[in-house]
Design a protein around this nucleic acid. Sequence first.
DNA 1: TATATTTTGTTGCACAAGCAAATATTGCAC
DNA 2: GTGCAATATTTGCTTGTGCAACAAAATATA
Lengths: 149, 149
Amino acid sequence: MGIKDDAVEVRAQGWRTLAALHGLIEAELERSLQGQARLSVVEYTVLDALSRQDGWHMRMQQLARATALSASATTRLVNRLEDRGLLTRILCADDRRGIYTELTDSGSKLLAEARPVHDAALERTLAEAQQVPELAPLVDALPRLHAGV
Amino acid sequence: MGIKDDAVEVRAQGWRTLAALHGLIEAELERSLQGQARLSVVEYTVLDALSRQDGWHMRMQQLARATALSASATTRLVNRLEDRGLLTRILCADDRRGIYTELTDSGSKLLAEARPVHDAALERTLAEAQQVPELAPLVDALPRLHAGV
DNA sequence: TATATTTTGTTGCACAAGCAAATATTGCAC
DNA sequence: GTGCAATATTTGCTTGTGCAACAAAATATA
């Protein structure tokens, strides 16, 4: 067992911690958002990403990257949200393959309701995770990543 | 916009970073493990968790927690691995509701083959993520969490 | 112009996930 | 001991996901 093997083990451990915290947060967000806004976490992510976009447009592929989802999953996700009237598809004028999505008023409104739920759940879960010894160091490190913002 | 609102935004940003890195790593692990060992990430997680367990047993619920999966998903996951002969169910003598799972020789062998694939994919993806400005700080923070181990 | 190649988004299909209900076992109250 | 709540695991059902195959539009090549 040398230095090299240690690095492998440290990475694996870091990844397990990351995955554990991610699972915990996602599960709690899912419960809260589903219960209080009828939104899944990815659905919230889409609305949030759209709202933080300058012109309020995004193309399907950008959305796929923002949600870490496959192209096909993104198509169906946008279908669901469109069926609920939360966003609309807009054909791209210059590139007719491209499809923009844009929040509707109804979508912005739902997002405005959901955001506090999301933020509260996040705060609550992080506080809870801080009580778990294996997770605490990562929880503490998170806010320092973007402290300047 | 006061200090409080900043904290909310910092948390949200931290969560987005965490989710993005998680998604990246999981996708790459999935590809590598699926391609070279016919294992999904959760399947690998189960085998790995069992191998790092003292007596090489775990109960279903422990497994569910280790994988961040529901009880039902865990049942079916264990079914799949049992059907492939990678682990066995063992009835718990003292608590007959409980069911232990234990790696078979075949399971340990596959894990031994898969582990280098997993570790290499993890190293590769972290190096890649370090090139992405938003992800780099988190990548750097990870090994420091368990530096002493 | 014609045509091959690449990019973008959608669909068919198979599979894994969660929720709720069912089943089995334990521990506790009386 | 009998009844009853709590715990552990499994099953039925519905839904969301990825992969591969596809269609349409843009771009490159000749």
